[in-house]
Design a protein around this nucleic acid. Sequence first.
DNA 1: TTCTAATCGAGACGGTACGTCGTGTCTTCTT
DNA 2: AAGAAGACACGACGTACCGTCTCGATTAGAA
Lengths: 195, 195, 195, 195
Amino acid sequence: VLTEGRTMAVKTRKGRPRRAGLDAEVLAATVDLVAADGYAGTTLDDVAGAVGAAKTTLYRRWPSKGELAVDALATVLGTPPTDLPPGPDGLRAAIDWLVAGVRGGGVQRLLLGVVTEAADNPKLRAGLRTRMRDPFTRRLASDWDLPRKDVDLAFDVVVGTLLHRLAMTGRITTADAKAVSEVAGHLLFGTDSMS
Amino acid sequence: VLTEGRTMAVKTRKGRPRRAGLDAEVLAATVDLVAADGYAGTTLDDVAGAVGAAKTTLYRRWPSKGELAVDALATVLGTPPTDLPPGPDGLRAAIDWLVAGVRGGGVQRLLLGVVTEAADNPKLRAGLRTRMRDPFTRRLASDWDLPRKDVDLAFDVVVGTLLHRLAMTGRITTADAKAVSEVAGHLLFGTDSMS
Amino acid sequence: VLTEGRTMAVKTRKGRPRRAGLDAEVLAATVDLVAADGYAGTTLDDVAGAVGAAKTTLYRRWPSKGELAVDALATVLGTPPTDLPPGPDGLRAAIDWLVAGVRGGGVQRLLLGVVTEAADNPKLRAGLRTRMRDPFTRRLASDWDLPRKDVDLAFDVVVGTLLHRLAMTGRITTADAKAVSEVAGHLLFGTDSMS
Amino acid sequence: VLTEGRTMAVKTRKGRPRRAGLDAEVLAATVDLVAADGYAGTTLDDVAGAVGAAKTTLYRRWPSKGELAVDALATVLGTPPTDLPPGPDGLRAAIDWLVAGVRGGGVQRLLLGVVTEAADNPKLRAGLRTRMRDPFTRRLASDWDLPRKDVDLAFDVVVGTLLHRLAMTGRITTADAKAVSEVAGHLLFGTDSMS
DNA sequence: TTCTAATCGAGACGGTACGTCGTGTCTTCTT
DNA sequence: AAGAAGACACGACGTACCGTCTCGATTAGAA
């Protein structure tokens, strides 16, 4: 399930074209509704209703609620920024982008729901890796010449810790964000380069 | 919801006594079934059937699936070891106990399920803190004179990161465990005391 | 699926007893709703709503819409009258009871729907025979000493012809009823005994 | 909806001409597929696929599944034979033609499906009368000087009874056919002219 | 030759019903 | 009082079919 493949599809396809922009509308609605009602509390009928589509239309594009959620997640966390300055500042900014992404706009509950389903579903796991973590890891590994293994770990530490804190306290505070950011910094800079 | 409080209830009550040891059986069955079928894939009917009890009996003892799961979790992760040696070795051992606990015997999927529900359920959040994290934090904070805040963070890093890795790859490897253990060590020892 | 078996069930059953009288309510609602909206136009949700039950409750008692419909039909056509006078007059009355039953109170559309499903469903066929035609045939065959084969034919002629006329003209007139009744009479009396 | 009117449409029209012979192919495929899978079990997508056409093409030619089915039915039952001998033998042959038509080549399930829809759909009812029953009735009424009302009744008895027997037993046997044929004979010959 | 228009294959779409599953509540009899 | 048993209300899931729609591509007669 590749968003690019879907939205950028060669224009010369047979049959009635898919409703333009519907994918993006659905993904946005998914993020919003899950932010408001939680992952389990969000129905595909709700999503369909929110965008004026039929449930069957959603099922034609995504094989399950989980796959849709992964896609929705990728719209928020799948594209790390490209305009990062070189050196330590850029690296810090990259980490903070991830931290802010997890905290921001109701991504938390969506992420939590997807992560839980992924544990039981290999396809979702692959989706999460490919669409969410890999882009981040690739960017950092290449731009700062870091071992991918280390960046993967930093990613999992950041996302995992923040989610767990959410589950423990109900919210992710600025202090939480700062602390996690520092832990990730240590991992990527080495033990001596953080203030 | 305290297991002790429940099972040790005033002995001299009217009526039929509660089936002895049922609590423990149920909690064990919960851990086993969730390990096998996942959290969502485990029904309360399944659990009831596994211990030869009726679903209503479970609901008399636990108000919801989530609370039962928290209780089951506490049987595995709620009691940090008491025979830890003083000094850094004991601290490392404490961390490794937690890491091993999360990895071991199918706790992973149970933990993931509970964590997800907890995000939307204050009562479960409180249960997780009280029954799982607080015992760990209290022990470490008092025995090694550490700020509770730091131990909480270490706890969340360990558990959160391992769970997230589970969601990413489907399993938690020995290498994962070692890496996470080291990160937690850094947090509690300071940047200079880990090899 | 035996109504008797269900409603007259031995009182000493375990568990919460089934809602008393619900079967009858459901069957009556089914007859009424199908009369109003047609067989295809009647949803099990509609039926459930009409009696204040949940759809799942209906599915616990009947395995499918078709089986429910057969049961509903049997409440109307499954019990030929017992107080028929002996001799030709009683036989005529029996036929007219059947004719009136098919015509009456919206049974037509229900019957038509069931008959159609039965053609593709052996279980429904058996149900129709056992619950609807057999009681009629048994009664007439024994009371008037007729070959069952002949009564079966008369039954099929009456019901089939009336339904087909319904499909042709949209309604079953009194004249239709009279004509069909006479045809059936011929079959059972022999060619010479009808005026 | 007249097949002739459609296929023989004014030859001199602009635009791309309709695919020649498609109507006949579709009707044949409809008969075959319904014979195999039943009326409800046959999708318009199935029919379209069977003849290598698009569903939209079918909907351009027939306004609904029911209308298509009526048309398909008319290809089988809409044209009583013209070479019938005069006198009772011809009449008997006409009846047997109808009986054989209903029994033959999977017409049964198609007929049953159409009849059911017709009960709720005036247009289909008119179609059935015009395209199926009227030709039969007209022929018999004129050739043997019978009241149309009587022939209509005979028609309904034959078709209705056979269909109902199908719904009761799953098949129409030779004995069924013979019995129904005799009943219809009685109706048209009078009570004394059948052996 | 170019224009115009009906038809075709293809497939997406809105809507609606189906039958299934799981949670948490309830009602009964039994211990 | 507690338990076993099972019915119950509720609500979401994912599937199937109908009939409609919107494309690009044909294929003719008309201009």
